[in-house]
Structure formats: structure tokens, C-alpha cells
Write a protein that binds this DNA or RNA. Structure first.
Length: 586
RNA sequence: GCCGCCGUAGCUCAGCCGGGUAGAGCACCGGCCUUGUAAGCCGGGGGUCGCGGGUUCGAAUCCCGCCGGCGGCUCCA
């Protein structure tokens, strides 16, 4: 039974009201003021999405807009619209470049023909504020580099200010900042970019996530294995990675033999399958591994923990008969939904995609049809809303991806279920069927968290660093009010420690205020304060997040409720709620 | 990899535009205070200004290259 707990109210609402119509109007007016004021920039149309507009221009002189010009354009756009701009829809362009950019909608703006993606209509009301966030290049073709202005626009300056406020708040949730502040992980020039160094606290989070996934693997029947990080290149030739993926692989020649660091775990698991003759009675066979893989992403593509070069997948491979595919997908999907519910991830912050057969593919249409239907039926039978990405599947099979949102609204793929017809073929995998014939099994690749790094980053941002207690590196800090009660504080510490709670004590020669402040800054879920009163009655004062305190809590009661909260992997501070109900607030 | 911006103490940043021997807050160390709930007071140590080259009498500051970071693009099998 799957319990889906969507809609958890643990995070502030990060949605901001950007109107596509307003963005569309701003896009046209921006192009208009460029056409009137910057003779070396040729407008090539704009597109609009839920986070702003993107306008492309061709630089006729090779110059690029600088900060000053950008600020001037913002002003000119608002000024022009205030003075009156007439926008008339003219039709659709058949220009090849505009078609390539999907900017085929043509509008006459004060007599100048300008372009916009056809899916959106400009607002009739004048814009009040434009902010160009960035000037970058857009390369729709390898040898074509366009100037791209990325920005937001609003009806009024007040709306812009509200957006800026939201944006500044969102930036504070950035996992890269929190990772440093909370002492979770770091990156170093000397180590190499995209290579994470986990500190003790970050490693605790990793371990908790892995522990959770071990439980999931057990339920799904995946047996954990362990495979090397480096294999001879011949293996990568067999798997096809050597030709398809070589530019992202780390290769090294040792003693006249070339080796490659693994970018994927599947070949290792396949070798296990191949160690003996398999019968239909053995299937499904499922292997899981917390496998660390290395993919040499290009430098500009790296991004905190969300895009790294070395990362650990909660990887798993199932070897199945065609008939077993649907059931397996359903089971995995259920577990994905269960795992997401543990983190209280809101439905708005998830997108599920089904990617279908691309133009270039291997296998038969029949195989693709069956596998795609299996994925689709699994989604529908579980009632999971999804969108279809036509032709976006891998060349080797269709897939389901689950994407989550980061603090500033960018989407990242985490969970994935991929059906694979290619690897069984390339490695010549077989099983003996009932009729004694040799059959080829289907392989499903699946990862539920996806990459531990990426998932951790999303969770840090989702919770603004204030992770649920079970995930928190430090769960309790014990603070004695004076030295006199240090002995009792020691006892409280020892009891918690012996019960397996991650507890620290703060005996610094500092004021109580400062220690409480420090604990809040470190996002420690429970601050336990003990003074003479507590020592006498064998109680504790418990301070939770949100400045909530419950006093006179019997020590044993606190320990038990805390242990429950951790065991249940509660999203909220459940123990605090229970204590509040039982003991009452101060 | 492409375009733009950025790199000053452990952290956050000022100084750079108009070159003249490096500063603040936090953190750290020491002392005072002996604490009842989100930064107590005083003092101290700490930086070849990312690296390399150039211009200059003189470079954190100007120029070039490299490394690293950020925002986009491309990519993410």
C-alpha cells in the first residue's frame, strides 16, 4: 500500500507571479527599443517561459552589449511603453532562422516587424518594469552564436520589487551556500572541479539516504552488489560506451592496457548475470549498488552538487522477461512515490515524464510498443500525472523520469526508470525459457534518488537546510545554563547518545543566548536546555524550530518521542508537537 | 566548449573607476563576566590581494594568458 503524503506544508511558497502575457509584451518592446537605438543588434525574436523571457539578437558588428547598454535598454523599454506603443499581430513568419528559434509569431510594434514565439499573446496593458538578468550567448547551431538577453518584466515597479525580494530569499536556500554554512561538503581547486568532498556532517546525510534506499531495495527484491570503479576499455567497447560516451569518460593507459573509470554501473551488473546460465525460473534477477560513477561533464555545465563529475547513484538493474516488465515498473514507481512522500515533496515540485521512441533506435517496433505501453500503464494504474516527451527516449529504450525543482525553480532529473534492449543484445544475455529455447532478457535501469548528490542538494534547498530530524547531521544539542548543572547535562547527553540519537553538547564559556543562536544557525532541530530546575526534576526544556519551546519535559518522555520521530522519518517536528500537547508550552 | 561577469583573512565583503607598501564584521586565540532562552565586554593573531607574465620609478588596482567560481547557451547517453 502506497501512502502518498503530497502537500506537506514544510516549505515556504516559492512561486512567483510572472505573467506570460506581460513577458511577451516586454519582449516585443525590448526588441523595439533595440531596433530604434542599437543599430548593430538585429532582433531575432523572443520566447517566454514561467521564469522570464529570452530575447535573441544577431550582433552585426561582433560587439556584445555591456552592463551600461543593458540598463539603458531596460529604461528605454519602460519609457517607450509609457509613451504609447501600438502592437498588431501580423501572422507567422516562414523565415528559416526564426523557425529554428521558434520565434515565428510576427507583430508590428509601432510599425516595426518583430518576432515572438507563437504560443503566447502579448498583454494589452503597458509594462512598468523590466529587469535584464543576464546577457549570454545562444548557440542554436554549432556555428551560429546569438546574443541572448534573459530577463523578467512586470506591470509595475512594485511587482518587480516583490520579485526581487522573492529571488533574494530563494538564493538563501541555495545548497551551495548552505553546504558551506552547515559544514556539509566542499569543492577545491586542488581536487578538481565537480568533485565533492564530504565533511562528517554531509556524510551523515549521505548515509541516512543510503540506509533508506537499502530498505527500499530490500522491498523491491534488489540484492546489493559491489563492483570496481575501473574496467578495461574492452568492456566499454562491448557496452557501447566507448564509442557513444568516450568524450565524457576518464581513460588511462596502464602497463600498455587502456582502462576507463566507470560512467555507469550497468556493465558490472551484467557481468554478474553472465556468470552462469539463467533459467526463466531465476527471473527476475535484480542487483543494486550505491555505485560511484565519473562523467567528465564540460566545465561550464558543472553546478554545485546538482551537476558534478563524480557522484553516487542508487543504481539498480533488473533482468526480466518481457512479461515481467510492467509489474517491475509499477513496483518501482510505487516506491518512488513512497520515497517522495517521506520527504514531503509537494506535487507542484514534481514532474513525471514518459519519453518515447526517438528517430534513431535499436530493437523492433514491437518491443518498443510493448515497453512503452508497460511504462504508460504503470503510470496510469497508479494514477500518477505525467507528460509525454515524444521521441525523447534513449536510443536503447523508453523511459520514465521524475524531475524536481531547485530553490530558484530550475528542474532537475532525479528518479529514472529506463527500459533497455541494447545492453542485453550487446552482451548476448540469455535465459532458457520453458520450451528450452534461448531468450533474451530485458534490462531495466532504475535509480530512485538518482544521484545522492543531486537529491541531497534538492532536499537542502527544499528544507532551506532545516532537514527533518532523521536526516539532520546533529539532532540535538544539549546546553547547560551554568557550570553547576554540567553533570546533569552530561547525563542527558549520555542518555541520548546511548539511545542512538546524534547529540552534541555545547559547554563553551559563552552566553546562553549566543549558544541558542548558534544552534539555530546550524539548523539543529532540537535544542535541549538544562538548568537547576531541570536538574532537580530530571526534566529538560526543549526548543524546536520556529522558536517553539516546551518546558518541564520529563527526560524519558523527550527521549521516547524523539526516537519515534526519527524512526518514523517524520517530515515535521512531531515530537515537539506531542510534547506541546502533553506538557504544554511555557 | 561558447558569451558575459567575478576571484582581497577560515567566511561575508570594502578598497580597484582617476596606480603610491592592505581594511571591516563574523569566526579563531587570550582576558573579564558566570550567564534562564536568536550575537555580553575588552584585547590579540591572521592576507606573497587565485596563479603566471607585461606596462610603470611604483600594480590588489591597468593589459595579456591560465586556473577556479557564477549566470546563461550547448550537453545531461
Amino acid at each position: 500500500m502506497v501512502v502518498v503524503r503530497f502537500g506537506g506544508d514544510v516549505t515556504p511558497n516559492t512561486e512567483v507571479g510572472l505573467s506570460p502575457e506581460v513577458l511577451a509584451r516586454a519582449s516585443l518592446i525590448l526588441q523595439y527599443v533595440v531596433s530604434k537605438n542599437v543599430e548593430w543588434l538585429e532582433p531575432l525574436g523572443c520566447s517566454v517561459d514561467e521564469y522570464g523571457f529570452k530575447c535573441d539578437f544577431k550582433s552585426l558588428s561582433g560587439e556584445w552589449p555591456d552592463e551600461r547598454l543593458v540598463r539603458r535598454l531596460e529604461e528605454l523599454a519602460v519609457k517607450a511603453d509609457a509613451e504609447g506603443v501600438e502592437i498588431v499581430f501580423e501572422g507567422f513568419s516562414t523565415n528559416e532562422l526564426l523557425k529554428l528559434l521558434d520565434h515565428t509569431g510576427v507583430y508590428r510594434v509601432n510599425g516595426v516587424s518583430l518576432y515572438l514565439e507563437p504560443e503566447v499573446k502579448p498583454s494589452g496593458d503597458p509594462i512598468g518594469a523590466v529587469l535584464i538578468k543576464n546577457v549570454s550567448s545562444h548557440n542554436p547551431l554549432p556555428d551560429l552564436s546569438l546574443v541572448r538577453l534573459v530577463g523578467v518584466a512586470f506591470r509595475s515597479r512594485e511587482e518587480l520589487n516583490a520579485w526581487i525580494e522573492w529571488y533574494n530569499e530563494a538564493v538563501k536556500r541555495d545548497h551551495r551556500l548552505l553546504g558551506q554554512k552547515l559544514d556539509l561538503f566542499s569543492f577545491h581547486d586542488e581536487a578538481g572541479s565537480g568533485l565533492v568532498i564530504y565533511h562528517p556532517k554531509g556524510q551523515v546525510i549521505r548515509e541516512e539516504l543510503i540506509k533508506l534506499m537499502r530498505e527500499v531495495n530490500k522491498r523491491l527484491g534488489y540484492e546489493e552488489v559491489y563492483t570496481p570503479h575501473v574496467y578495461k576499455s574492452i568492456l566499454w567497447r562491448i557496452s557501447g560506451h566507448y564509442t557513444l560516451y568516450r568524450d565524457k569518460m576518464v581513460l588511462a593507459e596502464v602497463e600498455g592496457e587502456e582502462y576507463g573509470i566507470k560512467p555507469m554501473n550497468c556493465p558490472g551488473h551484467i557481468l554478474i548475470y553472465k556468470t552462469r546460465m539463467r533459467s526463466y525460473k531465476d527471473l527476475p534477477i535484480k542487483f543494486a549498488e550505491f555505485g560511484t560513477v565519473y562523467r567528465w561533464e564540460k566545465r561550464g555545465e558543472l553546478y554545485g552538487l546538482l551537476r558534478v563529475r563524480g557522484f553516487t547513484q542508487d543504481d539498480g538493474h533488473a533482468f526480466l522477461t518481457e512479461e515481467q516488465v510492467k509489474e517491475e515498473i509499477k513496483a518501482i514507481l510505487s516506491e518512488i512515490m513512497y520515497v517522495l512522500s517521506i520527504f514531503g515533496i509537494k506535487a507542484n515540485d514534481i514532474r513525471v515524464y514518459l519519453s518515447t521512441r526517438p528517430e534513431k533506435y535499436i530493437g523492433t517496433e514491437e518491443m518498443w510498443g510493448k515497453a512503452t505501453e508497460a511504462l504508460r500503464n504503470a503510470l496510469e494504474e497508479l494514477g500518477i500525472p505525467y507528460s509525454v516527451k515524444e521521441g525523447e527516449g534513449a536510443f536503447y529504450g523508453p523511459k520514465i523520469d521524475v524531475h524536481f525543482k531547485d530553490s530558484i525553480g530550475r528542474w532537475w532529473q532525479c528518479s529514472t526508470i529506463q527500459v533497455d534492449f541494447a545492453l542485453p543484445e550487446r552482451f548476448g544475455l540469455e535465459y532458457i525459457d520453458k520450451d528450452n529455447s534461448r531468450k533474451r532478457p530485458v534490462v531495466i535501469h532504475r535509480a530512485i534518488l538518482g544521484s545522492i548528490e543531486r537529491f541531497m542538494a534538492i532536499m537542502i534547498e527544499e528544507f532551506e537546510g532545516k532537514l527533518p530530524t532523521w536526516l539532520s547531521p546533529v539532532q540535538v544539542v544539549v546546553i547547560p545554563i551554568t557550570k553547576e548543572v554540567q553533570q546533569y547535562a552530561d547525563e542527558v547527553y549520555r542518555v541520548l547518545d546511548e539511545e542512538g540519537v546524534r547529540v552534541i553538547k555545547d559547554y563553551e564559556d559563552e552566553t546562553l543566548q549566543k549558544k541558542v543562536r548558534k544552534a539555530y544557525d546550524q539548523a539543529i532541530p532540537y535544542i535541549v536546555i538544562v538548568g537547576r530546575k531541570e536538574a532537580e526534576n530530571r526534566t529538560v526544556s526543549v526548543r524546536g524550530r520556529g522558536n517553539i519551546q516546551v518546558s518541564n519535559v520529563p527526560l524519558e518522555l523527550f527521549v521516547n518521542e524523539l526516537k519515534n520521530e526519527i524512526r518514523e522519518r517524520a517530515v515535521t517536528q512531531k515530537a515537539l508537537e506531542v510534547l506541546k500537547a502533553k506538557v504544554g508550552t511555557q
